[in-house]
Design a protein around this nucleic acid. Sequence first.
DNA 1: CTGTTAGCGCTTTCAC
DNA 2: GTGAAAGCGCTAACAG
Lengths: 334, 334
Amino acid sequence: MTVTIYDVAREAGVSMATVSRVVNNNPNVKPQTRKKVFEAIERLGYRPNAVARGLASKKTTTVGVVIPDISNAIFAEVARGIEDIANMYHYNIILCNADKKKDKEIRVINTLLEKQVDGLLFMGGAVTEEHLQAFKTANVPIVLCATTDEQGVIPSVDIDHESAAFDAVQALIKAGHTRIAMICGTLQDPANGYARFQGYKRALEVAGLPYDESLVRIGNYRYESGVDAMKYFLELGERPTAVFSATDEMAIGAIHCIQDAGLKVPENISVISVDNSRMASMVRPQLTAVAQPMYDIGAVSMRLLTKLMKKEAVENARVILPHEIVNRQSVGSL
Amino acid sequence: MTVTIYDVAREAGVSMATVSRVVNNNPNVKPQTRKKVFEAIERLGYRPNAVARGLASKKTTTVGVVIPDISNAIFAEVARGIEDIANMYHYNIILCNADKKKDKEIRVINTLLEKQVDGLLFMGGAVTEEHLQAFKTANVPIVLCATTDEQGVIPSVDIDHESAAFDAVQALIKAGHTRIAMICGTLQDPANGYARFQGYKRALEVAGLPYDESLVRIGNYRYESGVDAMKYFLELGERPTAVFSATDEMAIGAIHCIQDAGLKVPENISVISVDNSRMASMVRPQLTAVAQPMYDIGAVSMRLLTKLMKKEAVENARVILPHEIVNRQSVGSL
DNA sequence: CTGTTAGCGCTTTCAC
DNA sequence: GTGAAAGCGCTAACAG
């Protein structure tokens, strides 16, 4: 039924070992023999069994990727960066959505490890002790992607979320705004939530602006929660003249909420965010945002993982990618 | 170093077979023995090797997914549907981007098959003879997802693209429009391109409206190409009063182009599309669109694949999911 | 209910 | 430059 390496060997009149050599491009084969083998392979329609190879060689050339939600544009972009580089180095990826739920994350990490992936890319919520525990039992390299562990012990690739938020808010302050609201992610989320909130507070502090709790709303990263938060701000006695959103999607919700209320962006209220997803230029006014290089985060983390898997020396295993503000039309001066 | 089933057997004082039974939940094990084995597993930190299991059982509980581009919101949504159901049936997915390029598609199909996936979900461009050839050599089930083969021989899950386009254009016609433009995908693309174009033409025809070549532009599915196409239409001597876009993203480009020209949607020009991605409600005016149930297409195709993999009987191996028009604010009556 | 015994299809020393 | 043989870690009959 299925043709094996042994069949090819017999057909070509050589041993299994030789067939294995030509399939794996081992140079120690006489060109003539190589040719015979290739012909036999062709004739029989032989397809190497990667599972058997994996068992024998203890390498599967596949890496596991745990991601919060592939249907989220931001993560999908990271995933594309990962897969492109994986592909370049002849790895495949097993993709698992874990929705930033700790239990699900631990579970998929374990099944990925059972499947003998050669490495693991982890993109999730907080990295807890349990995560660290699970990582420890893996005897393959792991890199955190668009995530970092407070402990600072696992290789990772990310931007500096605190500083990105700081820059965004500072841009608002430079434009003359003093009453700046924030639409935040949950503070349980170390990157998009907590760190960006800290950046917001620090920018205020550095500028000598007071921190006003009523100017902060927690959203769930979705468009609607941006709308809701903005609705709240608009009803405030003294409403903000600018809002900083932790993500593009909530920012767009805020913009539409402002417009639906008969106000204009940026004339009446300025909006800025961190992300710079493709949607940022797909709104009117186009969204000014601090760009987070998602594709690159994916690509760089995969590249780092390949080095780790090959046991190459890496100079810096905790890389912070630069972010930059891209000025479009949603921020105006006061 | 690595603890194997044999180690567990020795530790628990039973045979490998027994350990295998408890790991695989085989009921034929005395509770007491089961307990002993679990304890040994716990003590040793045993983790079953899925590769070895795959070799022995000829099942990997992983399926291959070839997708055009995971960073495209539409496909990402399908992917989420696939993964959710896969997960539910304890399968993992290996994800490969192939950008609708034939060569890349054939290549990844083959590596997926080498990796001994238990089934294949194919989402791509046209299904050519070469594809069929590659599918034939696979001895695992394959289902086309958001794609169909003209030949009609491969199980598939999709919507009726022609009819979806027809419905969209008909909605415009019912609203009194007679000069209707179309922003189309490439005609080489059977679904988003060719079929939707056919639906457009048929709706015109059924309504007794003339087909005017100058009212059709080919886009590349991206926002910018929607802008460009619309720009062209606006410069026409007699410009259209409505435009049908093959995808949301191009439709949003068109809307913004119209607005940037100082015109209003839908007062001056109506816009409708097929897709209904999450972005449809994230524009002003909100986009009226024929909804394509992407998540469901993914979920249903994965469900179908599980049945095929289990060799269960399936009544209908070519499922067409229903589409429906969701009326929002971008279409007005004439 | 439990153990023995063959493989699954390949890689990898080690000889020659 | 090539072959023989021993596993890789597990499942799956088959016995008992």
